[in-house]
């Protein structure tokens, strides 16, 4: 093992310290997670609308999306977008007269992949939240002359969100952890950056522990934020 002073230097911001790269990598992790989760929310809303459709074809489409994405490893989906994305981009560039091999930036690929995975789980969250809505309250809205849009905006969306929030909190935690898989396609997020540091200092135990602590703390802090929003939105439902 090593002396604490050396440890501090390694993790510090001075010369030879990995503090700054690690901090900015943590920023990348959070950024990718937020974008991925956001994309997932959009896909989740679309997926839930598909699955709730009256028609068989959209329902089938939505069902296929959630079954496939939730049934295969996340890393496989990341590889798919990684290889597929670069194949597609290279194709376009070659048509445009630029020879050679191109690949999409890791962040873009990663956000899309995390988003697609997160979207499948958010589809379920939104769908089951929607199904928990009280039909009577929606009817009451219609009976007051609310248009479809108004009903959606004033009654359905707020209540669905309220019911979906606990599940969304869990899905956010998953998305956060999933960003670590983006290290394998070259995105310098927290895990990759600690891997680099571990390699060049021969201190894997130290650096991976630091990464673990960082992931844990980010999860804790954001979890607490979610809980606060939840508490706020729960207020009407408490007796």
């Amino acid at each position: 093992m090593m002396l604490p002073l050396e440890t501090l230097q390694l993790l510090g911001f001075g010369p030879g310290g990995w503090g700054l790269p690690l901090l900015s990598a943590a920023g990348v992790t959070v950024f990718a997670a937020i974008l991925g989760f956001g994309l997932g929310s959009a896909l989740g809303v679309i997926g839930a609308s598909l699955k709730l459709s009256r028609h068989i074809f959209p329902r089938l489409l939505g069902q296929t999306y959630t079954t496939v994405v939730r049934g295969v490893p996340e890393i496989l989906i990341i590889y798919l977008f990684y290889f597929g994305g670069s194949l597609w981009l290279t194709g376009i560039m070659n048509i445009g007269g630029f020879d050679g091999f191109y690949s999409l930036p890791g962040l873009a690929t990663g956000v899309i992949a995390v988003g697609v995975v997160s979207g499948a789980y958010q589809t379920e969250a939104f769908r089951s939240a929607y199904l928990r809505l009280d039909r009577g309250q929606i009817e009451a809205g219609r009976s007051c002359g609310m248009s479809r849009g108004l009903l959606l905006r004033r009654i359905i969306v707020p209540q669905t969100l309220h019911f979906a929030l606990p599940a969304l909190g869990n899905i956010w935690q998953s998305a956060l952890k999933e960003t670590s898989l983006l290290s394998v396609i070259g995105l310098t997020e927290l895990l990759r950056q600690t891997g680099i540091a571990a390699g060049s200092t021969h201190q894997p135990l130290l650096f991976f522990s630091v990464a673990a602590a960082a992931f844990f703390l980010i999860g804790r802090i954001t979890g607490r934020l979610v809980r606060r929003v939840e508490d706020h939105m729960n207020k009407p439902w408490r007796r």
Binding site: E178, S180, L181, L191, G195, Q203, P204, L205, F215, F216
Partner: peptide
Amino acid sequence: ELFRGTPLLLQIFLIYYGLGQ
């Protein structure tokens, strides 16, 4: 809490690269 709150890949790395230390 720790094992649920950190990525599995990180846990794998910690064991694969870290334990040798």
